[in-house]
């Protein structure tokens, strides 16, 4: 019996110590993790917008985050956007704008949430839920950053996730106001090295660059070898003027598939296609509603 008690006591003591160590590490690293993730995203975003390597970011540039939710209540579903309100240059807090499935305006609720907390999904969900009341359930779907310069929109940054060959592929996609692609960055993937993992290489992802919306809408993957000059231009091995020329020339071409990784190539291009099309459709509806209801937004 005494034996039994000592075992229990020692095991409990070890568990407590172990729990203490793990808990402390979690608390210590969690903040750093979030900060690092945010910093990495920020770096990618600036690189996509063309401010890589220490280039100064103009002060007139603004970034406005737009969070999309699907709201379900007794009557059915609707789409909600959490967006910053107020004219350019003034802070009006955040508002949750609900739009019906057919694109009609439903209502607007002010959400008291700070600029810091809005980035954290848990805090954000809590604030929106509190503002909406208990009878509605919300589900976060995606977020978009609208980039402005002097109050004029210059780009949209979309983050999205779709299934690749092995697991999900997460990307950030930069679009210009006409929904043409500015750039694409692969954030997370677990594709096979040497095959599907090549999606993060310049010669694959830069193919999407400058593709117009009309082309992206119906983009396909071509299983043929990539011409040498195009490869060189995509990798940045030729001077800028020549590269621009070549890129223009291949603007309306389909995406060249990666050798031995057609499934990964198709996954990325149809992912980009779907994201762009859905975003364009939704943003038009949202803009329409914002204009009709005269909701002032900084973008």
């Amino acid at each position: 019996m005494k034996n039994f008690l000592t075992i229990i006591f020692r095991l409990t003591a070890s568990c407590l110590v172990a729990g203490l160590i793990m808990g402390t590490t979690f608390v210590l690293t969690n903040k750093a993790k979030k900060a690092n993730e945010h910093a990495r995203e920020q770096k990618v975003v600036f690189a996509l917008l063309g401010y890589s390597g220490g280039q100064e970011i103009p002060e007139s540039m603004g970034m406005h985050e737009l969070y999309r939710y699907v709201v379900t209540d007794g009557e059915g579903q609707s789409i909600g956007y959490l967006l910053p309100v107020g004219e350019h240059g003034q802070d009006g807090g955040f508002s949750f704008v609900r739009i019906g499935l057919d694109g009609s305006f439903l209502n607007q609720t002010s959400v008291p949430v700070s600029e810091e907390n809005v980035r954290d999904q848990g805090e954000r969900d809590k604030a929106i839920q509190a503002a909406l009341g208990g009878d509605k359930t919300i589900r976060f779907t995606d977020q978009t950053i609208v980039v402005t310069d002097h109050g004029q929109r210059t780009a949209y940054l979309l983050s999205g996730k779709f299934p690749g060959f092995k697991t999900n592929i997460a990307i950030i996609l930069a679009l210009d106001p006409e929904y043409s692609v500015i750039g694409l960055e692969v954030m997370e993937h677990e594709e096979d090295p040497g095959l599907g993992a090549e999606i993060e290489q310049d010669y694959f992802k830069n193919q999407f660059k400058y593709k117009p919306f009309e082309k992206i809408k119906s983009i396909e993957v071509a299983k043929k070898p990539m011409p040498d000059e195009y490869f060189a231009a995509l990798e940045g091995n030729v001077d800028e003027a020549a590269a621009d020329d070549i890129m223009q020339q291949y603007r309306d071409q389909d995406i060249y598939a990666l050798t031995g990784a057609t499934i990964s190539s198709v996954a990325v291009s149809s992912g980009v296609k779907g994201m762009t099309r859905k975003f364009a459709y939704r943003l038009d509806l949202l803009d329409n509603v914002l204009e009709q209801q005269q909701i002032a937004v900084p973008f």
């Binding site: 075992i7 020692r10 070890s14 172990a18 160590i21 793990m22 590490t25 690293t29 969690n30 993790k33």
Partner: peptide, 25 residues
């Protein structure tokens, strides 16, 4: 008598620590 569980617990603790640290930094 609880040698092996103690080993497992010890290893798991340090693995968690390094896992969280790598993920963060």
């Amino acid at each position: 008598r609880i040698r092996i569980p103690t080993y497992t617990l010890t290893i798991a603790t340090w693995v968690t620590v390094i896992d969280l640290t790598l993920a963060a930094f």
